[in-house]
C-alpha cells in the first residue's frame, strides 16, 4: 500500500482485494511471505494446510474467526481472557512452524529460553 487517506487507499484496498489481516488469515499468510519468501499461492497453501482448511477459506472471516478462537491465536473484538499480542504470537510461531523474532526476544528477556 502507500500514502493517501486511509479510507481511500487502505480501507478500499482491503475491501477490494485484501485478505483482512487478523479478521481472517492475512497476517499468517504475510508471515510466510516475509519469513520464507513464498509467493501468494504457496503461502496460502502452507497456511491452509496448517489450519486444515481450503485456501479460499483463509479470507473468510466467519470461518477464520472460529478457528482463531479455537486455536487462541488472536482475533479482533476479542473475548476476555483471549491471547493477545505476544501471547498470540507464541502460539502462531508454534502453529506455523516458524521463528518469530519478537517471540524469541520475549523468551530471552523473560528467562523462558
Amino acid at each position: 500500500m502507500g500514502s493517501g487517506d486511509p479510507f481511500g487507499n487502505e480501507a478500499t484496498q482491503e475491501v477490494a482485494v485484501g485478505m483482512g489481516g487478523i479478521r481472517s488469515a492475512g497476517d499468517l499468510v504475510l508471515r510466510m511471505q516475509l519469513s520464507r519468501g513464498m509467493k501468494i499461492g504457496q503461502a496460502k497453501e502452507y497456511v491452509a494446510g496448517k489450519l486444515g482448511v481450503k485456501p479460499p477459506e483463509l479470507g473468510d472471516c466467519s470461518v477464520m474467526r472460529e478457528i482463531r478462537q479455537d486455536l487462541d491465536i488472536g482475533y479482533p473484538m476479542p473475548d476476555p481472557g483471549a491471547a493477545k499480542g505476544i501471547a498470540a504470537k507464541i502460539r502462531i510461531a508454534d502453529l506455523l512452524g516458524i521463528t518469530i523474532n519478537s517471540v524469541e526476544q520475549f523468551k530471552k528477556r523473560s528467562g523462558l529460553s
Binding site: 487502505e10 484496498q13 482491503e14 482485494v17 485484501g18 485478505m19 504475510l30
Partner: peptide, 20 residues
Amino acid sequence: IASVERGSEVVTSSDSGAFK
C-alpha cells in the same frame, strides 16, 4: 467498488511508518 473473486485475495504491506 470493484473487487476480486472470492479466494483470490492477497496480502498487504505498507510504507509511511504507521503515520498515515
